[in-house]
């Protein structure tokens, strides 16, 4: 019973962070700032939802698979994010900054 409550709370927290990630990805001004909320979904959102599912599984095989999904996400998501950011920088994308937003200069690729 207590375990059930903990699991539900965990799922609720995870769902909240997933929503925050979704809102952030839409709200932030440029690619690099959007990646930060996206990272929230990948690490905290996924972590809490999978943690919440863990007590509901009732079978060691299911638990191991849940843990495996979490480990895969934890290893792959930063690599994908890093590759994306690196490629975007190489392509000449300039990160948004507060100062540039004020002056509104629009210089293209170098």
């Amino acid at each position: 019973m207590i375990l059930e409550i903990i699991s539900w709370i965990s799922i609720a927290i995870g769902a909240f962070f997933v929503l925050v990630g979704g809102i952030g990805i839409l709200r932030m001004p440029d690619l690099f700032t959007r990646m930060h909320p996206a990272g929230i979904t990948d690490s905290v959102g996924a972590g809490f939802i999978l943690l919440g599912l863990l007590p509901q599984s009732g079978d060691w095989l299911v638990s191991v698979k849940l843990a495996l999904i979490f480990v895969f996400l934890l290893f792959t998501s930063p690599v994908a994010t890093h590759a994306l950011a690196h490629a975007a920088l190489l392509d000449g994308l300039k990160p948004w900054t507060k100062a540039r937003d004020k002056t509104r200069d629009k210089d293209g690729a170098p």
Binding site: M35, S43, H82, A85
Partner: peptide
């Protein structure tokens, strides 16, 4: 990877001895 996993910081380039962070 730890930098990227922590929300708020993001590694964009890894060199020997330094890491570019957004």
């Amino acid at each position: 990877n730890s930098i990227t996993l922590t929300p708020g910081t993001l590694s964009t380039d890894v060199r020997e001895g330094e890491i570019e962070v957004h």
